[in-house]
Amino acid sequence: MLKGELVQLKAPDRSALPAYVEWLNDQETRGYLAIESTYPLTMAEETNWYESMLHKENDKAFAIHTLADDVLIGNVGFHNISWKNQAATVGIFIGNKNYWGKGYGTEAMRLALYIAFQELNLRRVELGVFAFNSRAARSYEKLGFVVEGRKRQWVYRDGIFHDVIEMSMLKEEYLERYLKEDEKRWQEL
């Protein structure tokens, strides 16, 4: 269920933390991410994140590995899961730049959406994408995310303020696109 054609989602392993730290401190990668932490991110902070993730009920993280050779390339996770409202925010990054622009991130997000709607029983998944990050926005639109707003001058990067595009997907929209595929994979288990 958590395997696609290019990637698979796994539980993050403690041994992956140094790679995460390196990726999240990369200026280009970091530029697309809404992380509020001070630069540079330290191993101590990342270890704290990992430890807290093991016990937190309203955050879930998944390591993105290639399917072919099981290489760790990034992470996708749900934050601020509101169980009562059946909603969450999703965040994703591909840290290994060899895998940018080749559909790996798109497929990882698609598998994450399976988790959200079909296994976590959520009804709404939302995300924010910086206005200048058109590659990501195209990927989300391709998957079926709907633009629902724009937070003006929300983030300060490279000396100016940028807008953030707000996107979301509802369960019925997900099912319309992916139900058949999911049923097939469930039957084949």
Binding site: M1, L2, L9, K10, A11, P12, D13, R14, L54, K60, F62, I115, E119, L189
Partner: peptide, 21 residues
């Protein structure tokens, strides 16, 4: 614990499980 064919029938379900868990 990371084979969905096995875990679909368990209480834990099909989400991946870390080595620490």
């Amino acid at each position: 614990f990371n084979d969905p064919l096995i875990t679909k029938n368990l209480n834990v379900g099909v989400l991946p499980m870390s080595k620490d868990k």
